[in-house]
Each structure stands twice: as structure tokens, then as C-alpha cells.
Design a binder for these strands. Structure first.
Lengths: 208, 208, 208, 208
DNA sequence: GATGAATGAGAGTTCATTCAT
DNA sequence: AATGAATGAACTCTCATTCAT
């Protein structure tokens, strides 16, 4: 079980290595390493060395290696859920909200590309209970997204002959896979990808 | 590297466990186990036990554990490449060919769902050289697919304002993620998903 | 070494968990846990959690984990030594004194069954010096017991052809093993066992 | 789970270190070390170093450290059970059979003093299931012993006013504790102790 | 063609203890 | 009087791979 995470003595989260508080440093390094080598291929020893502490310190804050992964998921899930909820609650035309939600999740996925990579590659390495918890939270997120599509269908803006749940799986497959091909130093900005993915989604469902 | 892989289908009937030849049995069990537990969490011992042989036998046919994974990739890549090449070479309207190619890759991905799961989860666990080889072959596949989109754009059937490479990444994200949500015993047949994914792709790119 | 052990019974009412003073609570919980899981398998963390204090508190009162064990031995040794000395000093017939001493050590062993279990299972986990100290005290106890047998032999009440030291080892083997089979909720009261063990001892040595 | 124990390639069980077969050597060294330091304080590393092999070899033959302990128990239990069964089945007077059984278990306990020490100190460190198995076998042994006492009571040779089960616990307490005080280089031979313990037991139960 | 004993390096985790506060 | 973060060493166990047979 995660013990108490932050402790919040001081430090606003500045540096990567020795500046930040210990739990933050551990999470940051774990994220970087899990994204690079994969969860199973990253040893606890590597994490603590990268964070400049000892194993004892890690196990003081986190109950297990598994716990670190769960915490990483928690952070990104919370962030994306909050943003989607805010967008979905706006008074705009549902087409605009869907477009914005789609673009937003692409941008935040690219901004947190390490978390995105970890998400789709390592989820099945979580303990069964934690996996269940993460899936439940993810399902809530997908349901909110799906409800936008359903709303658009009721309004007559979106085609009625598509299954909203399949559209969600279709789109989030694309989003989760950003980590396999997107590179920050490539020709495409996060915004450019977001605009294009959002556009593809909208065209795929809109009433012609 | 794989030494001699299959040796054909004969076998002479000496097999201890099931009917098939030893290398086939090993590949089949490895595929099943890798899909279930992941590559790193599947031990060579488990594979040989499931196949009813000993470690020595495995290392007689395959040079390493890594080699098994590479062989699995090889099979599915060969299959999908052949099918795509055949579809792309037909004389039909490019919209029909794209629709058919999209539907076909969905169906074969679902029919080989274990391979699909392994593909996107375990690619980064291959040795660097083998990873490079697989990526190269995959790129060829994507290029063929992309050329269909480019052809449609030249013909005026598809919107000119989308980047063909992004469309490919968009669509194959969806395909690779089938393994995370599709269940054979669910309400949707492989064909139904294929039809819908293909339809979503076509709508997302066609000239309105 | 124990620093100041008890500090009396007062406590001022500041205790966080139950009523008793901190060192007593620690000893009580340690006894319970050592008897249940064994010394090596009980962590300092478990002890302090059971007692409702922190590690710092434990190390304030006791110099080490080893020290706790030594203190537990000290208590039960002091108790049993006092009682035996009192019984041995009475003016009764030596047969009655031996019978009473035997019955008494059985009763107090059962009443402090946790200590009994710890005694014979964990003695060798004490540090060498402490082990020596405990053994010396135990030897004194055995010598007092043995002198009763020798006295009975001189008086002609007990058979002269038995070795008193062997009788002591014979009998205390039985006593120390109470912890392995006696259960408070079984059919036998402490007194019943005490009566029978005492009777068996007396029959084994008395002059027929 | 214990895998296959012996393998019996050659070697009649001569030496302690490098002569004997690997599993035998491991068991012998484990017995010596467990008796000396206790189960929990003996590391797997120490065992394999003493046996001159690597950890992998140990885990090739034994499923766990726990398994080694179980195997040690198995050997001594089997030996003592066989001997008791043989003695109990003889046609002699029951008093002679009880005396012989008592003396025999003392002699074999002293001859295998390491096993005896381990038995009473480390039983509770076995996994619950294995503990149950050992206890069941031990119970059978005790029942055979108890049946001798019951037979003697029916014949009128032994006092009817003692509980046979308590006599068994009484006597085997003494036997199990041999390990705490007996030293091979002391003044008493195994036979001398056996004769005296057997004599004490017989006097404690016989009809005066 | 196939065995299985053995290796050796490294995995995650636990723990008694210390010490600045 | 008491905290709790942090240490560092040791723990049991796993694993892909090799090689004499």
C-alpha cells in the first residue's frame, strides 16, 4: 500500500535529481525509466540510484514497486479526468466540446508522453486489484467521453449508425499509441497532432 | 537467431504431448503465455512445461527466448503483409481497397488476438537488432497502407488536408489496441468491428 | 542492555493506546508476538504498532530488540525462582515440597504460557552474553530443584539409584514442552496437569 | 515442493562435504547449521557455501528453504516410526516393550541430536501446511506409544489412575529437550541416559 | 535429438538501528 | 519523551542459459 506519498516539507518541485522531495524524485525517475525500458526491465536498484537514495527510502514511501506504478497512473488519470470533466460541462455545441476534448487529451498525452507509454505497455503488470481500480477509473473517463458522442447523436449532429462505445475504443487506441511513434523533436507539434486527430474523429462521426 | 524453425509438418508421430511438431507446439504455447502474462513474466520453464518438452529441446530449436518472440512477430507480419499486398494490388476503386484493407487487418488481428496483444506490449523487449528488423518490416506495411490514402487523395476521393502518415498512425493505434478491449465472447463479431472501424476510417478521410 | 525498564505503574494517563505505561505495553505485546510468530519473525515495527507507539519510543526504553527478549526472560525467571525458593525453604516432608514445587512450576508455566513458549524456542536467539546470564540463572533454579531430590535420597524417601541431575532434566523437559501441546481451552485445567505431572515425577523417584 | 531429492548417481553417503551427492550434502549441511544457529538465522547462502554448490543447485533440488526443513523432519520421523512400530509389534511383556521403546527413542534422539534440536526449535517455522503434515505423522507416533501404556493399564501392569496421553506428553517433553543439555563429550553415554529415562518412565507408571 | 543438473547474476523486499529534530 | 525518515546489509528466490551425457 502507498504510505503517504509527499510529506510536503518544502520544495516546489523544481529539479529532477536532488532538489525535489524524495517521493517526488522517486516517482519522476521511475516514470522516466519505466517509459524507457518497461516496468519489468527496470530494477528497483536503478530507480533508487537515479533518485539518489537507497532502497530503504523507497520502501519507506511506497509499499512495493507495483505501488510506484499505481501512483504514476493515478496522477495522469486524475489530470485527464479533471480536464475532460471541465470540457464536457461547458455550454458549447457538442461538436465543439468533442473536438476540444479530443484535442486536449492528445495534447496532455504528448506532454506526458512517458506516462502514456507506461499506461498502455505496463498496465497488465499491475497487481490484479490495482489493475481493477485503474480500469474502473479509466472506464469512468471513457463513459464521459462516450456521453458526448451520444449527445451529438441525439442532437442529430452525429451519425446515428455508429456505436458510441466502438468510437471511443477506436479513438483511444489512437491516443494510447502516440507513445509508439511521436517524438518531441519530430516535425509535428503536439497541437498539430491534436488538431488533426480531433479533425479525423469529428469527420468520422459527423452527419455528412 | 532461429536455427531451423519449423522442420515442416510431418513429425513422425513421436511427440509426447499433443500431436503437433515440437517447434510449432513451443511457438503456440509461447504465444498463449506471452499474451497472458507478458514476455518478461513468462519463464522458459513455463513454456517448455506447457509444450511438454524440456529446456534442452527449446534451445535446440530456438537460440534464445528472444528468438521465440521474434518468430511470433515474423508469422503475423508475414501474414498481414501478404494480405495487404494482395488487396492493394486489386483493380478496384481505391476507396473500396482502403475499406477492405482496413476491415481485413481488423479481422486478422482479432483472429490472432494473442499475437496482437504481444505485438504492442512486448516489442520493446526484443533485442535492439531484432526490434529494428521488425520495425522495418512494419514500416513497409504502413507505407503500403499509406500509399492507398495518397492514391485516394490524388484521385480526389479523399480530403487533401489530412496527412496520410498521421492517418496511418491514427488507424493502427486503434487496431493495435483491439487486444485491450476485444473479447471473443463479447457481443461483437470480428466482422462487425471490422465493418465499423473501416467505416470510421473511410468517413474520416473521404471528400465530403 | 535495558535502560530503565519500567518507571513504575503510574504513567499519568498520557498513554495513546491502552492504559498501561509504555514499557509495560511494549513488553506485553512483544511477549504475545514472540510466542505467536517466534522472535526472528516478529519485527520491531510489528511490536511498536501493537503497542501503539513508534520505534523511537521503543529504542528510548530498550537498547535493542534482544533487550526485550532478555527482559521477558528476566520476569519469568524471577517469578519462578522466588516461588521455588519459598517452597524449598518450608519445613515439610521433602516429598511434599518436591510435589509442590513440581506442581507449582507447571501451574505458573501454564499461566504464563507465552513466556514458556518463548523460553524454549528463542533462548538461542539471545546474544551470547545474555544467553550466558540466563543460563546461569536457570542453572541456579535447577540446582535448588535438584537439591530437593538429593535431600530425599539422603532421607531414604527417594531411590538412590537415579541421578538427580538427570531427573531434573527429565522433568523440566516435560515442563518446557507444555507450550507445544497445552491449550487453555482444552479439557485439562492447569491444576489437573500440575497434579498429574507432579504425581508422575514423585512415582518415578520415590522408594517403592 | 520437494522435487526429487536423491538422484542416486553413485556414492554411498561417505563424506560430509564434496564426496556425497548434492542433495545429501545439502541436507547434511542444512541439518548441522539449523541445529547450530536455528532455522531463521541460517541463510541459504551459508548452506550452499557449506555444501560447496550454488543457490541454483539448491533450488534445483528443493523448492524452498522450508522444503529442506521438511525433508529433515521426514527422515528422522520415518526412522523413529519404523523403530517404534517394530518394537511395539514384538510378543514381549508390555513393560519390556515400553522400556525398550523409551530407551530406543532416547538413543536415536541422541544419535541424531542435530535433528532433535531442530525438531523442537524450528517446527513452528515450517509453512502451515507442512507443519500440519509433520504434526499428523508425529501424532501417529505418539498414538502408538500411548497404546503401549493403555495396554499395560488393561493388563494391570500400569497404574490406572494416569492419563496415557499426558504420560506421552510428559515423556516426549523430556526426549525433545535432550538437545538443550546433552553433549556427546559429557560423562553420560547415550545408553546411560536411555536406561535412566526409560527407568524413570517405567517407575512413574507401573503398578507399585 | 534431447536431457536436466548446475551456474551466477540479479531480482524485490525486509529489517534493526540511527539520528536530526 | 518521542518522532519518523533514511540507511545499508542481508534476505529468499528466480531465471536464461550452458554443457556433459
Amino acid at each position: 500500500m502507498a504510505r503517504n506519498a509527499t510529506s510536503g516539507t518544502s520544495n516546489g518541485g523544481t529539479g529532477t535529481a536532488t532538489g525535489a522531495a524524495v517521493p517526488e524524485r522517486l516517482l519522476a525517475e521511475a516514470t522516466r525509466l519505466f517509459a524507457g525500458r518497461g516496468y519489468d526491465r527496470t530494477s528497483v536498484q536503478e530507480i533508487v540510484e537515479a533518485a539518489g537514495v537507497t532502497k530503504g527510502a523507497l520502501y519507506h514511501y511506497f509499499g512495493s514497486k507495483d505501488d510506484l506504478l499505481h501512483e504514476i497512473y493515478g496522477r495522469v488519470l486524475r489530470l485527464q479526468t479533471e480536464r475532460l470533466d471541465a470540457i464536457a460541462a461547458r455550454p458549447n455545441d457538442v461538436r465543439d466540446r468533442l473536438a476540444e476534448a479530443a484535442a486536449d487529451v492528445v495534447v496532455t498525452s504528448i506532454e506526458n508522453l512517458d506516462d502514456t507509454k507506461i499506461f498502455f505497455r505496463s498496465m497488465h503488470q499491475l497487481s490484479p486489484e490495482k489493475q481493477k481500480a485503474v480500469r474502473a477509473e479509466r472506464r469512468r473517463y471513457h463513459e464521459t467521453f462516450r456521453s458526448l458522442i451520444e449527445e451529438g447523436q441525439r442532437d442529430g449532429h452525429f451519425r446515428p449508425d455508429v456505436r458510441p462505445d466502438l468510437v471511443v475504443d477506436f479513438f483511444f487506441g489512437s491516443v494510447h499509441h502516440l507513445g509508439t511513434w511521436y517524438h518531441a523533436d519530430g516535425p509535428l507539434s503536439a497541437k498539430a497532432v491534436a488538431a488533426e486527430f480531433s479533425d479525423l474523429l469529428l469527420h468520422s462521426v459527423r452527419q455528412p
